[in-house]
Design a protein around this nucleic acid. Structure first.
Lengths: 174, 174
DNA sequence: ACCTGAACACCGTTCAAGT
DNA sequence: ACCTGAACACCGTTCAAGT
């Protein structure tokens, strides 16, 4: 007789996927270790075999979310950079400040950073200059909180301004 | 016989002051209704006479924090605007996204906004243009999360860039 | 009017036990 | 090795009761 597939063994992948499903559907506020365990049809402590604590699991969930962003392929480097930032915002915009702090050091963060640095290198910026620009841009992209009464294009208005202002004041090799 | 002054009646002011003291000393993570009650030497539910729920109280605490920022008096409007943004960051930088959303509609938010609009009006921008610029600038100032490995001037590097980029692309009346 | 006290429905996490 | 189950020390908040 076949094993009940819904009762298959736990794994990091299955746990992260279930967590991501909860966050996508109901937001971070609805996410708890107990709710996650319920969704996996398992007792709360089972998850702790695979992740030391909630913090470690959330990092993995954030990394998975960041891993879903499709790297843009615009030919124009500025358009590519901007598209990357807009995607980063939708993928990472809901994570809290303490986790943003570590965002660049994850595999997913390095993937976004590499794509950004490639665009900036194409524009003629050296590594150090690109790093400064990227931090400012990503910080705005994932940090802009949104205010009551914001126009639809308010976020992009600031993003375009920051792109202009940050890129202009960098030492270019072009 | 004199009343024990430490047992004086509760009031919104006393509650908010105690809450602010906890947040200043130990951060938002350490703040809870139960911890606050303990600090006030009162039972947890006593605070609910003055604030409907934790959310309403936290709004009041944030407003009090914002109320503490001293409005800068630099003669140069750009320096005044930048100083205001740096102060706003230190005062409001730790509040979460959901509360940032409402920040502009508080008395404290309107005070900061009025000072910013005054600086921008002096620079020759009309109300609508000043509003767009201020939202972008404040959003960056309170939203920039900080990343591991940021240089000391990283935040200000982005802020200067945003000031340049946002102000340059606005329709000026000057 | 203002505060108490118990209670409810949640948390994250420990620990010892089961299989 | 992997999951259970109870337990601990927390939460925010309700409700009825005390003074």
């Amino acid at each position: 007789m076949a094993r009940d597939t819904s009762q298959q063994q736990l794994s990091p992948e299955r746990i992260v996927a279930a967590a991501l499903a909860i966050v996508d559907a109901h937001g971070w506020d609805a996410f708890s270790m107990r709710k996650l365990a319920e969704e996996l049809d398992v007792w709360p402590m089972a998850v702790y075999r695979y992740f030391r604590d909630k913090d470690e699991l959330v990092d993995a969930v954030v990394a998975a979310a960041a891993g879903r962003v499709e790297l843009p392929d615009d030919v124009d480097w500025r358009a590519r950079l901007k598209a990357l930032l807009v995607e980063a915002r939708t993928a990472l915009g809901t994570i809290d400040r303490d986790r943003s702090h570590r965002a660049l050091d994850t595999a997913a963060g390095r993937r976004l950073t590499a794509a950004a640095h490639a665009a900036l290198a194409e524009a003629g910026f050296d590594r150090r200059a690109a790093d400064r620009a990227w931090r400012a841009l990503l910080g705005y992209a994932i940090g802009y909180p949104g205010f009551a009464g914001d126009r639809r294009d308010q976020f992009e208005f600031g993003l375009d301004g920051l792109l202009d202002g940050v890129l202009v004041r960098l030492p270019s090799r072009a």
